[in-house]
Amino acid sequence: MKPLIVLLAVFALCLGITALAGNADINLSGRIAMSAMLSFTAMGHFKFPGGMAMMMPPFIPAKKQIVLLTGVIEVLAAIGLLVSSSLRITGILLIVFFLLILPANIYAAIKKVNLEKADHSGNGISYLWFRVPEQIFFIAWVYYFTINVSSG
C-alpha cells in the first residue's frame, strides 16, 4: 500500500508543479512518480534485508545478496526512468522485474511474512487481493509511461 501511495502522491505533486510551470507534463510526472516509488521500495531492501529474504522459499540460495541486488536494480531502474534515451529498455526490464518478483510476494503472503519485523505476523493470503492487482497496475503504469510513450 505504501508504494502505491508514494506513486500517486508524487504523480499528483509533479503534475501540479508542471501545470503551474505552464505545461502539465503527464509523461514526465508519471516517470518521476515511478522513479520515486522505486527509490522508496529500494530503501526497504537495504533497511529490511532479513525480512525481505524471508519472502523467498528455502531452496533459493544467497537470499540476502539477492535482496541487496534487487535493491540496486530498483535504484538503477529509478535512474533509467529519468533518462529519455533509456526509457524503452528500462520499461521492458522493469516489467520483467515486476513479473519476476510477483512469486516472492505470493510466497510471502502465504507464509504471512512481515518484512519489517522479519517474522510471520504479516497479513497473509488476503493481502494478495490487493497486491496482485497493485502489481498489474505498476506494470501497466510502466508500460504506459515508457514503452507506449517511446514507441509513439
Rank of each mutant, 00 (worst) to 15 (best):
F59E: 15
F59C: 12
F59R: 14
I60L: 08
I60C: 01
I60S: 08
I60T: 09
I60W: 11
I60P: 08
P61L: 13
A62R: 15
A62G: 11
A62S: 13
K63E: 09
K63S: 11
K63P: 05
K63N: 05
K63W: 07
K64C: 02
K64V: 14
K64M: 13
K64Y: 09
Q65H: 13
Q65A: 15
Q65P: 06
Q65C: 09
I66S: 09
I66M: 09
I66K: 14
I66L: 11
I66N: 02
I66Q: 06
I66P: 07
V67E: 12
V67T: 10
V67M: 11
L68H: 09
L68R: 07
L69C: 03
L69N: 06
T70Y: 09
G71Q: 07
G71D: 03
G71S: 07
G71A: 04
G71R: 00
G71C: 07
G71H: 06
V72H: 00
V72A: 00
I73G: 03
I73K: 04
I73R: 00
E74T: 03
E74N: 01
E74M: 05
V75E: 04
V75Q: 00
V75K: 01
V75H: 04
L76I: 03
L76H: 00
L76K: 03
L76S: 00
A77H: 05
A77F: 06
A77Q: 06
A77S: 06
A78I: 00
I79T: 01
I79K: 03
I79R: 01
I79W: 03
I79G: 00
I79Y: 05
G80F: 05
G80W: 03
L81M: 00
L81W: 02
L81C: 05
L82T: 01
V83P: 09
V83E: 06
V83G: 07
V83T: 06
V83R: 05
V83Q: 04
S84G: 15
S84L: 14
S84W: 12
S85D: 14
S86R: 08
S86Q: 15
S86V: 11
S86K: 09
S86M: 13
L87D: 12
L87H: 12
R88N: 07
R88D: 08
R88S: 08
I89C: 11
I89V: 14
I89P: 05
I89N: 04
T90V: 07
T90N: 02
T90D: 01
T90M: 02
G91Q: 00
G91S: 02
G91M: 02
G91I: 05
I92T: 07
I92A: 04
I92Y: 01
L93Q: 03
L93Y: 01
L93N: 10
L93W: 03
L94P: 10
I95R: 06
I95L: 03
I95D: 01
I95K: 06
I95C: 10
V96K: 06
V96G: 08
V96L: 12
F97E: 06
F97M: 07
F97P: 02
F98M: 11
F98R: 08
F98D: 10
L100Y: 14
L100Q: 13
I101A: 03
I101Y: 07
L102E: 14
L102D: 13
L102T: 14
L102R: 12
L102N: 11
P103Q: 15
P103M: 14
P103D: 11
P103A: 15
P103K: 11
